[in-house]
């Protein structure tokens, strides 16, 4: 049987100064993406809010792999600025990495 599931990538984003409301961050990225790349590209990316960490500073979102480049470019061009910390193909790997680097992250970004 064919595997019809979309390949997705999970992105950990630093939102330490709470420039964006935790759930509205996807809305803000979609809005900027539509402005820069158009509605079709934005819809194609299927951006989803996944999770937020306990301290509410790292937001995890996902998007389709084929539109990852577009999403990364969009995030760089956001105002107020947000940073893509890590990207992973699985949520588990991303969370493991975030856990491992959490001390470094807080020292660098807070």
């Amino acid at each position: 049987m064919l595997n019809r599931r979309d390949k997705r990538r999970y992105l950990a984003i630093w939102n330490g100064d709470h420039s964006y409301d935790q759930r509205k961050i996807v809305e803000a990225i979609s809005k900027r993406s539509s402005e820069l790349f158009g509605q079709i590209a934005t819809e194609k990316a299927k951006i989803r809010f996944i999770d937020i960490d306990e301290k509410k500073v790292i937001v995890i979102i996902s998007c389709k792999l084929e539109m990852l480049g577009t999403m990364l470019s969009t995030i760089v061009l956001m105002q107020p600025p947000i940073v893509v910390l890590h990207i992973s193909g699985t949520l588990k790997a991303l969370r493991t990495r975030m856990g491992r680097d959490s001390e470094k992250l807080f020292l660098a970004f807070l």
């Binding site: 100064d17 990852l68 480049g69 990364l72 470019s73 995030i75 760089v76 940073v83 893509v84």
Partner: peptide
Amino acid sequence: PREMISGRCFDSLLNL
């Protein structure tokens, strides 16, 4: 720091 650009993002911008 939050205005910095990650390596992967730089690559995407270069492709653009």
